[in-house]
Simulated assay, not measured.
Amino acid sequence: MDGTPEFDRILIKLSGEALMGDQGFGIKPEMIYYVAKEVAAVHKLGVQVSMVVGGGNIFRGVAGSSAGMDRASADNMGMLATVINSLALCDALEKQGVPTRVQSALPMNQVAEPFIRRKAERHLEKGRAVIFAAGTGNPYFTTDTAAVLRAQELHAQILFKATQVNGVYDKDPAVHKDATFIKKISYMEVLERQLRVMDMTAISLAMDNDLPLQIFDLHTPGNIAKAVCGGEIGTRIYNS
């Protein structure tokens, strides 16, 4: 790896939980500053950067549904939570000198642009980062699926999922001490083994459209730039 980007256009998927740090809820200023700094380093390499961020640090639709709330209502609340995170990340990126736009799948013109694919492409071509908020705009779909969908629509060359763990294991490493790390794996194997690295709908959509995925630890400084420059970190998921 020589510091030269391997990709021209990427999409980064961030979990909402990544923004709360050790708080247990909400957005930790130090953490969102750290994330913005990591993304800005990639943007400065000349890479066209788009992002999807979850909302689990504020509200999770699945959790609301399991507590007795109507699933559609709970998911709508989760989508609004992603808008809050997207606006916070946009502000942090702008402070890092990265011109950024937020596009929302739910109309809310006073705080974000509506999602328009051609406009998003134009932003990227102009050197602006784009954050896609509110998931797909539909209940029952996760932000993982939204990330794969947006990556496909924008012809991103790869989707990076910067997360809380350093890659994919054959079983939960937090529970099983003998869990084995997996460096490379096919989409079909992820589906067959029910490895919960991403939503199964997202994995299927990526497989159908041959979109490579790379899962790695967000909390190691420089990891996003390393992945963009072809570093072998985390786990690569692809068509075998």
Rank of each mutant, 00 (worst) to 15 (best):
residue 88 A to Y: 01
residue 88 A to P: 00
residue 88 A to R: 05
residue 88 A to W: 00
residue 90 C to G: 00
residue 94 E to D: 11
residue 94 E to C: 07
residue 94 E to G: 01
residue 94 E to L: 05
residue 95 K to A: 10
residue 96 Q to E: 15
residue 96 Q to M: 12
residue 97 G to E: 09
residue 97 G to L: 09
residue 97 G to H: 11
residue 97 G to K: 12
residue 98 V to T: 08
residue 99 P to W: 14
residue 99 P to M: 08
residue 102 V to T: 07
residue 102 V to A: 06
residue 103 Q to H: 11
residue 103 Q to W: 03
residue 106 L to W: 06
residue 106 L to G: 01
residue 107 P to H: 11
residue 110 Q to E: 15
residue 111 V to I: 15
residue 112 A to N: 07
residue 113 E to A: 13
residue 115 F to P: 00
residue 115 F to H: 08
residue 117 R to H: 10
residue 117 R to L: 09
residue 117 R to K: 12
residue 118 R to H: 11
residue 118 R to C: 05
residue 119 K to Y: 03
residue 120 A to K: 10
residue 121 E to T: 01
residue 121 E to G: 09
residue 123 H to K: 02
residue 123 H to E: 06
residue 124 L to Y: 12
residue 125 E to A: 15
residue 126 K to D: 06
residue 129 A to M: 12
residue 131 I to N: 08
residue 132 F to D: 00
residue 133 A to Y: 13
residue 134 A to W: 11
residue 135 G to Y: 15
residue 135 G to V: 04
residue 136 T to Y: 13
residue 138 N to C: 05
residue 138 N to W: 09
residue 139 P to G: 00
residue 139 P to D: 07
residue 140 Y to W: 13
residue 140 Y to V: 02
residue 141 F to I: 04
residue 142 T to H: 13
residue 142 T to P: 14
residue 144 D to T: 01
residue 144 D to L: 00
residue 147 A to W: 04
residue 148 V to C: 04
residue 150 R to Y: 09
residue 152 Q to L: 15
residue 153 E to D: 13
residue 156 A to V: 01
residue 157 Q to N: 02
residue 159 L to H: 01
residue 160 F to D: 01
residue 160 F to G: 00
residue 161 K to D: 04
residue 161 K to C: 03
residue 163 T to S: 15
residue 163 T to H: 12
residue 166 N to H: 14
residue 166 N to V: 03
residue 167 G to W: 13
residue 167 G to K: 05
residue 167 G to D: 07
residue 167 G to P: 06
residue 169 Y to L: 04
residue 172 D to Y: 10
residue 174 A to T: 12
residue 175 V to C: 05
residue 175 V to G: 03
residue 176 H to V: 04
residue 176 H to M: 06
residue 176 H to T: 02
residue 178 D to H: 10
residue 180 T to R: 14
residue 180 T to E: 14
residue 182 I to G: 02
residue 183 K to V: 02
residue 183 K to E: 15
residue 184 K to E: 15
residue 184 K to F: 04
residue 184 K to A: 01
residue 185 I to P: 04
residue 185 I to C: 06
residue 186 S to H: 08
residue 186 S to F: 13
residue 186 S to A: 12
residue 188 M to A: 13
residue 189 E to I: 04
residue 190 V to K: 06
residue 190 V to W: 05
residue 190 V to S: 07
